[in-house]
């Protein structure tokens, strides 16, 4: 049972930071199906920097992990510029742009992972082996019956992400920038006539979205196998989008949905082990998050209120 909580949390939290990224973009009026691509590309940059730094800083160094997170954020943010450029300046169809960015991201990371490996150690491997992140257990809280598992064997990045989520909640709901951003997604004309900068705000929102997705991606890489490969992201970006939809574009509720996803995933795995089924059967349990997503979508999609202006390019000349 504690394993369910521990593993569930380490899946839910990176998912949450990506969902927060998606919320930022969509609340600003840019439909974002490109989370999967942002996460992959950001994580690629993070992992590349980690692989380059590990010999310098020593294999066990934990500092590498934090530098990798920063690099992943920068990488994801830079890659997000493509989506921003296509959607905001080129006024391309935002759904197409999202899909294009995902496909291109997968192709870029696949090619350059093997190219980088060839350059670094001469073999065209399709993965970067990362260091192992230390884990820690919160004394006291971890002993609480039932939910104690939440506080056992935590990754340090989980704390960092939680702090980030709180910060981005504050940025969206309490600051001037956040107020402008949300107005952008509902009625950009209102913001424009009030003297706000619609295009700039959207650009920043999409870049934030990319940076947060990159952080989510590198954290997944550390928590899943301590290695990065372009193929480890099994639609997690889309899961984050689904979480955002159930969460009704609200950071608080989205966090709850991410937890449900995380526990469904880890619960399935533990159930498989507990039932004593052969490892072949794990495939069936791995389907659980996706099936759960479909069910939740069936029950909750109709009541949703996406940001009104999301998906529409904004044209200053049009009134």
């Amino acid at each position: 049972m504690t394993k369910v909580f521990t593993d569930g949390l380490s899946f839910a939290i990176p998912l949450l930071i990506m969902a927060v990224g998606a919320i930022y973009s969509e609340k600003s009026g840019v439909t974002n199906l490109a989370i999967e691509g942002f996460q992959g590309f950001g994580a690629f940059i993070g992992a590349l920097i980690a692989v380059l730094l590990m010999p310098v800083l020593g294999n066990g160094s934990q500092a590498v992990i934090y530098i990798a997170m920063l690099a992943a954020a920068v990488g994801g943010g830079l890659y997000a510029c493509i989506h921003a450029l296509l959607c905001i300046n080129f006024k391309a169809n935002q759904v197409i742009s999202g899909v294009v960015v995902n496909i291109l991201g997968l192709a870029l990371t696949t090619f350059f992972t093997s190219a980088a490996n060839t350059a670094i150690n001469g073999t065209a491997s399709n993965k970067f082996v990362l260091g192992v992140s230390t884990r820690f257990t919160v004394p006291g809280l971890s002993r609480i019956p039932w939910v104690g598992g939440l506080f056992q064997n935590m990754y340090p990045f989980e704390i960092i992400i939680i702090v980030l989520v709180v910060f981005f909640w504050y940025l969206m709901y309490r600051t001037r920038f956040g107020m402008h951003l949300r107005a952008c997604g509902e009625n950009p004309q209102a913001l424009d006539t009030a003297g706000g900068k619609v295009e700039l705000t959207r650009w920043i929102a999409v870049i934030i979205s990319g940076a947060l997705s990159g952080i989510g991606g590198i954290c997944f890489a550390y928590s899943i196998l301590s290695q990065y490969s372009p193929s480890i992201y099994m639609g997690y970006g889309y899961l984050a989008i689904a979480a955002m939809i159930f969460g009704n574009w609200n950071i608080g509720t989205t966090a709850l949905v991410c937890l449900i996803f995380g526990f469904a995933k880890s619960g399935g795995q533990q159930l498989c082990i507990a039932a004593g089924l052969p490892s072949n059967y794990s495939d069936l349990f791995l389907m659980l998050p996706y099936i759960l997503t479909m069910l939740l979508l069936i029950f909750f999609s109709k009541k949703n209120h996406p940001p009104k202006a999301a998906g529409e390019a904004w044209d200053k000349g049009r009134r």
């Binding site: 107020m179 509902e186 009625n187 209102a190």
Partner: peptide, 14 residues
């Protein structure tokens, strides 16, 4: 040019 889901005050100070 108003944001529908904002309050009157939020719209005015935007």
């Amino acid at each position: 040019k108003l944001v529908d889901n904002y309050t009157i005050a939020e719209n005015i100070v935007l």
